[in-house]
Structures are given as structure tokens and as C-alpha cells.
């Protein structure tokens, strides 16, 4: 059984929950930008929640199935069509052999997740099927899918209930403005008190340079740095540090100008200071931000970050409960 790519969309990649364990060699975790959405899609079609699906950004692909299949589409609001007839999102859908799955224009959010019962059965690379295009690793031949590719589909571990749907209340997307919670730290002390204030009080907008590696923001005030004698090896710009590791979600501001939040395909390190880190609970939301979305950074501490993490886990538990009905 396979899904034939009629048209690939803008940039559609095979993603699962990623390949932790190789970041020290510069190979990022990767995996779905919106992990909750991928898990939900998988659970709806009877897959294990970490099975490989497709992540499509802004424009959906067009897929033709060689055999009967069960699919579910979650994440962004982008109308799902089977042979041109609109179908509900976040719902287990039956597709018969020869039918075409396609999408209408994006309404809100940025990325959809397409799970197919059995999962996309490309070979594992370092323990994961996620695509890391810079390293030509994983996914379908190490790259985004292209027209005429035939995506192999595996065998689902359990049967799906057609029509099963995740309630609206559990499909949390970013608000407006999007609020991203940040724990200050790392090289936070490089900034002046005025910049400590403005970073959190300014309104930002997602810049066009926003992809799986990182999201850039603009519109807020430039950062001001505390004076220093540059440490040996750091470089002369006040935003430079001796090249160090970058946490996922860390916020770097090259030249003090535009903050960049690193995401799943992050560069693992470099020479720019970071002022803090977006908490794990809000990483999925970033994956659903379109360019120009008004955004704010909200300062929180570790206790609140762990509380938010628990709340996020509780939503996934409720999705699991719905799927196992």
C-alpha cells in the first residue's frame, strides 16, 4: 500500500517525534513542529502516537491512495477534501483506493499533520523517520516529498473508528496576539534593565524568515547590552559569545536586532548570546504561527513553566482518552 504524491505542497516532510541523542554532533531532534497535533492525528487512525506522518506548511499536498486507507488531518485549519468533497478536520476519515486527498486554502495556523493508518513506512535513520533536509537524513530520501513520489504505508497496529473526532476544546491554537512564555536565563545578564523590560512589553510580529530551524520576530525595540571587554574568542559584537550549545526554544538576538526562537531543526550551537528559552509547553504553538502574526513574549519562572508543562500533558491525556473510546 502506498500514497502517491500528485502534488507536494510547499514543503511537506515526513515527521515523527524526532531523534533525540545526536544533538552533540549537530544533528537536531527534528520531528513534528506541533507534536500534539501529530500525536492526535496518529491516535485517531489507530497508530502509535509517534508514528511517522506528513507535516505540510501553508499549502497542503495532494495524495492518491493505491488501497483503502484511514487518514486524519490535524493542526492548522485547512479544509480537507476527499475527491473534492470537504471533510472534517481532526477526524478519522475513510479513503477508498484511487481516491485523492487534497486541501483548500489555509484559514488559520501554519502546519497540518496528515496521519495515515500504518504510518509512513520510510526506513529509520538514527532511530527516527523524521526528515532533516540540511543533513539529507531520514524521511523520504532525506528531503521534502516531490510529485510522483510513492510513500510506503505500513500496517496499523489497531483498527480505527471512522468518524471519531477530537473535540474543539482540545485543539488549542495560538491566540492573538500569540503569547510565548519565556524563562529568562543563559546570557540574560548581557542585556540592560531597559531591554529586560522592553523585550517582554513590546509587541513583536513573526518575520517571513520562519521555518523548522527557527522563527524570527521583528517590530520590537533593539536590545541594549551591558558594556564589556569581549572575552577571548567571542568576537567583537556585543551579541557574540564563545560558540556554545543552543537549547531548543532558546531566544538569540544576533546584533541585538531581531529575536530568533530555535525550533525542532535547530542549529545545535553558535556564537550568539541567548536571553532565555521558550518553555516546552509553548513550542507546539510556534509551529502554528504564520508570518506577520502579532506576538508577545511573557516572562515566567521555572515553577510556572513546569505547571504549564503539566497542563499541556493533561490535554494530551484527554486526547488519548477520546481516541481510546
Amino acid at each position: 500500500m502506498a500514497a502517491k504524491v500528485v502534488s507536494p505542497g510547499l514543503s511537506t516532510t515526513v515527521q515523527d517525534l524526532g531523534r533525540p541523542g545526536y544533538y552533540h554532533l549537530g544533528i537536531p531532534m527534528g520531528g513534528a513542529m506541533d507534536r500534539l497535533a501529530l500525536k492526535a492525528a496518529n491516535l485517531l487512525v489507530g497508530n502509535d502516537e509517534g508514528a511517522a506522518g506528513l507535516e505540510a506548511v501553508f499549502v497542503g499536498p495532494e495524495l492518491q491512495f493505491t488501497a483503502d486507507a484511514v487518514v486524519a488531518v490535524t493542526g492548522a485549519d485547512m479544509p480537507v477534501m476527499i475527491d473534492g468533497v470537504e471533510q472534517p478536520g481532526w477526524t478519522a476519515l475513510a479513503v477508498t483506493a484511487g481516491q485523492v486527498l487534497s486541501f483548500d486554502y489555509l484559514r488559520s495556523g501554519a502546519r497540518i499533520y496528515i496521519a495515515i493508518a500504518g504510518g509512513i513506512d520510510v526506513p529509520l535513520a538514527l532511530g527516527s523517520r523524521s526528515t532533516y533536509p540540511i543533513g539529507a537524513l531520514g524521511g523520504f530520501n532525506g528531503r521534502a516529498i516531490a510529485a510522483d513520489d510513492e510513500l510506503p504505508i505500513g500496517v496499523a497496529p489497531r483498527s480505527a473508528k471512522i468518524g471519531l473526532s477530537i473535540p474543539e476544546a482540545l485543539r488549542r491554537g495560538p491566540g492573538s496576539p500569540a503569547e510565548l512564555r519565556v524563562v529568562p536565563g543563559l546570557y540574560w545578564d548581557r542585556l540592560t534593565e531597559a531591554s529586560h523590560q522592553s523585550f517582554f512589553s513590546d509587541q513583536w510580529k513573526v518575520a517571513p524568515e520562519a521555518d523548522r530551524m527557527g522563527y524570527r520576530f521583528r517590530g520590537g525595540a533593539s536590545m541594549q547590552f551591558v558594556d564589556r571587554e569581549p572575552p577571548f574568542g567571542a568576537g567583537s559584537d556585543p551579541s557574540n559569545i564563545v560558540d556554545a550549545c543552543y537549547p531548543y526554544g532558546s531566544v538569540q538576538v544576533p546584533g541585538g536586532l531581531e529575536p530568533i526562537v530555535l525550533h525542532r531543526d535547530a542549529v545545535s550551537g553558535g556564537g550568539y548570546f541567548m536571553l532565555g528559552t521558550v518553555i516546552s509547553a509553548d513550542m507546539d504553538l510556534i509551529g502554528q504561527l504564520q508570518p506577520n502574526t502579532p506576538s508577545r513574549f511573557v516572562k515566567i519562572d521555572m515553577t510556572a513553566a513546569l505547571e504549564a508543562r503539566k497542563e499541556r500533558a493533561a490535554i494530551i491525556d484527554r486526547i488519548r482518552a477520546v481516541a481510546s473510546q
Binding site: 519565556v182 543563559l186 577571548f232 564563545v242 556554545a244 531548543y248 526554544g249 521555572m302
Partner: peptide, 18 residues
């Protein structure tokens, strides 16, 4: 020592390279 969000611990041995 500094935390990078709720999942990372960053440890700087020195701010200068040696």
C-alpha cells in the same frame, strides 16, 4: 549554571575560550 527553559541546563566553564 543557568536553565534553558524547563528542559535544558546550560553550564558555562568560562566566558573566554581556552
Amino acid at each position: 549554571y543557568s536553565f534553558g527553559g524547563d528542559e535544558h541546563l546550560f553550564v558555562e566553564c568560562s566566558d573566554a575560550m581556552s
